[in-house]
């Protein structure tokens, strides 16, 4: 008869998962840092794009005659 034994992850599992968590955290923090660094440029790009759209609309000739 087999003893059921513990079902919680072993230390080896936890260590390996710790490594993976480290990788995911690194990626997350790096992405966050990149986004924050580029936030000003991104904002500028969005504003420019919005302005371009509106300018385009303004430039259209809406006269019926």
């Amino acid at each position: 008869m087999t003893t059921p034994g513990p079902r919680h992850p072993t230390i080896s599992y936890l260590v390996h998962r710790g490594v993976l968590i480290g990788i995911v955290l690194t990626i997350t923090l790096s992405t966050g840092f990149l986004v924050l660094s580029a936030a000003a440029d991104l904002q500028l790009w969005v504003i420019s794009a919005i302005q371009a759209a509106r300018d385009e609309w303004t430039s259209w000739n809406w006269s019926l005659w």
């Binding site: 993976l20 968590i21 995911v24 955290l25 990626i27 997350t28 992405t31 966050g32 986004v35 991104l42 969005v46 794009a49 919005i50 759209a53």
Partner: peptide, 20 residues
């Protein structure tokens, strides 16, 4: 132009959070 990039960033954030 505002919502879509924010959605993309939110997706990236979610894509990092789920594995964590």
């Amino acid at each position: 132009l505002i919502v879509l990039p924010i959605g993309l960033l939110a997706g990236v954030f979610w894509g990092c959070t789920v594995p964590l």
